[in-house]
Every structure is written in structure tokens, then in C-alpha cells.
Design a protein around this nucleic acid. Structure first.
Length: 468
RNA sequence: GGUGCUGUGCCCGAAUGGUUAGGGGGCGGUCUGCAAAACCGUUUACGUUGGUCCGAUUCCAAUCAGCACCUCCA
């Protein structure tokens, strides 16, 4: 079965093809580690994880590279803003490197708890200064960059089709009044490759270079590292939609100029998560983290499930009501799976109607292959979950298959152990029920339920499940 | 001003030119000592106005409303 994805470059859904047979080279833009990742950031990483899992399920060996930007970045290329890592360091009275490592670590833990597959290679910008400088050299040699006052700028006018990805008009961009004017630039759309003459003269994170002691501009590290680990041809490059107009536009300019050909085949972008009709933004200080959600009693898996319900190219409205729905849905699914497992132990497996299982699988692959339609997959999932013509055995095997993509750890989920105290209480209540002492047994049930365990009385005795 | 997106039932949220999305919630019922879970039923869906068509929520046009990006941000 073929894969089709929406390519930002062409604004069309196209058949996915790779350069090297059966190998998919995937680059995803990673975090700048100056703060905690918020759930909007994480939505994009979840989208990328779904993409990666899809590629794998369709038989590709995926080489997945993600960068960690740990060299401080200015607010903008115009050298007018603040270096975020430095600011964090000042705020927290630590060294910039401490800050970067701390947030990097935290970020990776978040990814882990969301069950995101670990990239094949995670690379830090600070450890690739040599590669970055090498690429800048090449761009200067090829006349795509110029040096003024110790800074190196990319010359946008020299690069054809600069706005291919964003489809913005150059003159409109340059007339944007909100961008500070930089007199050193030939063209206001030119962007920095290397800073040695920045207002941060005392910056700790600086490296020697032929152009002066300084640090790289914001876009070059992705181009340099992507090339180092994936070569001149990259099958898919991902990020958030905000990267389309500037960051990815500049990456294309740098890389394609350097190698004289198109380096990236597919550009895919995850839409934003919207909070109270506003984008979540670190600078506006209105953001929620995974830790916040945990404080409200939600698991990372609940958030992941919530994200699965909205297509990656649609804006997703976040509110706690929806998150609560996601939680109920996921927990009830897990409880069903536990029931199926014990059912399987207790009686002989019944047979499904022939071909039914395959039909569900086909619908699953069809939805997946057409631009990652995960919401449809969820509806297919719920259909077979409630389908009486499918055996429990087949349901479990389908769940397994679906979860390779969904990544919710559905089948790993096992029934937790109860404390001895609660087990005794349940037994005692069963005795009382046999004696039809309803008042006493109901009191005990109340006590058990107060500790978060719900009871169900069946023909085979009392069963229980965790309240959610 | 430029680039793009969206408008679906009580809520979240898909697909689709004609046939049930799915989930959550509410209500009614079955079951139960009572519950719970499960199951069954129910809850007048496609922003507005035109057009194309045998037929439009789905295509086209206009219109209204909302959103994002163009500035560090996923």
C-alpha cells in the first residue's frame, strides 16, 4: 500500500517516495532548551511520532534525527532581542550550559512519558560548531553569504525562489514594520549565519571563528546537522507551522544553496494547539506543561489520546473538558482490555466471522496511509471494540496492531494489585451479600469505592476496576 | 496589507455528492437486592444566501463569523 502525505512545499497531498529504497530519512526540529516544553510544543512531537510509527508500520527503516538547540538564540535575527538561554541563566542563577542540560533532560523525560519513540540521533548544536562553520565557509565561497563587521549574512537576493515554502512576497516581508532595521544588511530579509558582533559581548557561549569569536545564527545548525547525519537528501523534514515562513524557509536557502539542489523532498508541519483562543506562547507566559496536567490528575497518555482525536493539520482547541473526555475514553478502553484478557483465560476463544478482522485492518491502513488520518483510526477502533462478531482474541490482536501507531501502551496495561486490606473487605462483603445483609454490604462497598476501587457484582462473584 | 486555514448535533471531532463516523455527556430501558459495568434506544448536525446536479453537509460563487502566521516560538 502506498503512503500519501500533505507536502507544504506544494500544498498538495502527494505520494510519498524515498531516495533510498526502504529507508526513510526524517529530520524533526527539536526544542530550544531554555524553558519547559508546553503541551503545544508536545503536540507537534506527538504528530512527528505518529508519522515515524506510520513509516515503520509501512516497512521503512527510519533514520530519525532531532536537534537540541542549546546555543542561546536571540529573539530575532536582527540582534534586537534577548538571548533566551542567557536570560534563563540569569533568572535561575545557573550557567547557560546547566540551564540547557536541565531543560533538555526534562524535555526528553516528557517525550518518554508520552511514549514518543526516541530519535535515532539526538544532536546538540553546541557540539557541532565545526560543521556549522564548515557550511558557512561553503556558503561564503559560493557567494551566497557576505561578511560585515564580524557577522556573516546569507544573501537572500542571490537565492532563487526564496519564498517557495512560505509563498510570501519578498517586498511584503521586507516592509514589515515590526522588524527592526539592520543597516549592515544588504537586504532586510538577509539572515545571520554567524554573529561575532552582537550586543551580547560578554556571552559565555562563544566560539572562535575566522570571522571573530561568537556564535551561530539561528537557522544554520539545522542545515549543518541534518546534512551531517542524513546527507544531502532528506526524505521528510518536520516542524510546527510557525517554522514555515522563517526558519524552514531559511534552511531551504542555506542547504539548497550549499549543495546546488533540492535537499528536502517532503516538508510536513503540525498545526498549533490553541488555548483560550490564543496560541500558547512562552513569551506571553500563558502555557501549560505536562507537569501541570499531571497536577490536575491526568496522565501523559490522556493527553496523547486527546491529540490523536484531531488531525495534525487542524488547529486543536485545548480545554480541560476535552481532556477529561479523553481520559474517560481511554480508561474505559483499558478496562475493556483487562476484561478481555481475563475472559480469554476463563473460557475458550470464540471465532470471529471470517474476514472481519482483515476488513478492520484494511480500514486502519487506508486511513493511516492517507495523510495520517488518526481520528478515523480511532473510530475504526471503537467499531471493532463494540463489534459482537469479532472474537475477544481477535480484538486483542487488533488492539496490538493499532497500538503500534497509537502508542498508548494499551496491551501492556495490566490490572493492578489490590492491597490485602481491600481484598479482605471485598471477601467480607461477598459473605454479607450471601446473607442478604444489604445495609452492611453497601456500607463496605462505599468504603471500598472511597478508596478509588469500583465493584461489579457478577454471576462469578465480585469483580473490580479502578475508578477514573 | 500579505499568506493560509476553519465554521458539523449538548460538548470534542472525522469522513463523504445519495447509505450509521467515533468518543464524551444527558435522558429512557434491559440487567442488578440496590448499584456499577455492559448492552439497547434516544438526544430535530452540517454558518448564511445563491448556483451546478436527478440529488449537496460534501463541488462552485458570494457573504458573515472566527483563527493562525507574516516577530523568538511547535
Amino acid at each position: 500500500m502506498k503512503l500519501f502525505f500533505y507536502n507544504t512545499l506544494t500544498r498538495k497531498i502527494e505520494e510519498f517516495r524515498v531516495k533510498t529504497s526502504k529507508i526513510a530519512k526524517l529530520y524533526t526540529c527539536g526544542p530550544t532548551v531554555y524553558h519547559y516544553a508546553h503541551i503545544g510544543n508536545l503536540r507537534t512531537y506527538i504528530f512527528e511520532d505518529l508519522l515515524r510509527r506510520t513509516l515503520q508500520v509501512f516497512g521503512y527503516k527510519v533514520i530519525h534525527v532531532m536537534n537540541i538547540t542549546d546555543v542561546g538564540h536571540l529573539e530575532s535575527d536582527e540582534d534586537s532581542g534577548d538571548d533566551k538561554i542567557i536570560l534563563s541563566a540569569l533568572r535561575e542563577k545557573k550557567t547557560p550550559l546547566d540551564i540547557a542540560r536541565y531543560y533538555e533532560n526534562f524535555f526528553l523525560k516528557d517525550c518518554n512519558s508520552l511514549n514518543l519513540l526516541k530519535p535515532t540521533i539526538i544532536c546538540r548544536a553546541s557540539e557541532h560548531i565545526e560543521e556549522i562553520q564548515y557550511m558557512i565557509h561553503q556558503l561564503i565561497d559560493k557567494n551566497y553569504a557576505y561578511i560585515i563587521d564580524g557577522n556573516v549574512y546569507f544573501d537572500v537576493a542571490r537565492f532563487n525562489n526564496y519564498s517557495q515554502l512560505s509563498r510570501a512576497k519578498l517586498h511584503d516581508l521586507s516592509s514589515n514594520s515590526r522588524v527592526d532595521f539592520d543597516h549592515r544588511k544588504k537586504n532586510q530579509k538577509d539572515f545571520v549565519l554567524w554573529f561575532s558582533n552582537s550586543k551580547f559581548q560578554n556571552q559565555i557561549m562563544r566560539w572562535d571563528s575566522p570571522w571573530g569569536r561568537g556564535f551561530p545564527g539561528w537557522h544554520i545548525e539545522c542545515s549543518a546537522m541534518a546534512t551531517k547525519y542524513l546527507g544531502e537528501y532528506i526524505d521528510i523534514h518536520c516542524g510546527g507551522v510557525d517554522h514555515i515562513p522563517v526558519h524552514h524557509t531559511n534552511e531551504i536557502a542555506q542547504s539548497d544553496a550549499c549543495f546546488n539542489h533540492q535537499c528536502v523532498n517532503f516538508w510536513m508541519h503540525g498545526e498549533f494547539l490553541i488555548l483560550d483562543k490564543n496560541k500558547m506562547s512562552k513569551s506571553k507566559n500563558n502555557f501549560l506543561t505536562l507537569t501541570n496536567l499531571k497536577e490536575y490528575g491526568f496522565d501523559p497518555a490522556h493527553y496523547r489520546y486527546l491529540c490523536l482525536g484531531t488531525h495534525y493539520r487542524s488547529q486543536m482547541l485545548f480545554n480541560f473538558e476535552s481532556l477529561k473526555m479523553a481520559k474517560s475514553t481511554l480508561e474505559s478502553l483499558k478496562n475493556r482490555i483487562i476484561d478481555w484478557k481475563s475472559e480469554l483465560k476463563n473460557k475458550n476463544a470464540d471465532k470471529s466471522i471470517a474476514g472481519k478482522k482483515k476488513e478492520y485492518l484494511n480500514r486502519f491502513y487506508a486511513a493511516l496511509s492517507y495523510d495520517l488520518n488518526i481520528p478515523t483510526i480511532l473510530s475504526v477502533l471503537w467499531e471493532f471494540v463494540k463489534d459482537g462478531e469479532i472474537s475477544v482474541n481477535d480484538k486483542l490482536s487488533l488492539i496490538n496492531e493499532f497500538d503500534l501507531i497509537l502508542g498508548l501502551g494499551l496491551t501492556e496495561h495490566i490490572k493492578p494489585e489490590l492491597s490485602e486490606y481491600l481484598i479482605q473487605l471485598i471477601k467480607k462483603r461477598e459473605e454479607l451479600r450471601k446473607q442478604k445483609k444489604w445495609n452492611c454490604s453497601d456500607k463496605i462497598r462505599q468504603e471500598i469505592e472511597n478508596s478509588g476501587v469500583m465493584l461489579k457484582d457478577t454471576e462469578n462473584g465480585t469483580d473490580w476496576y479502578l475508578k477514573y
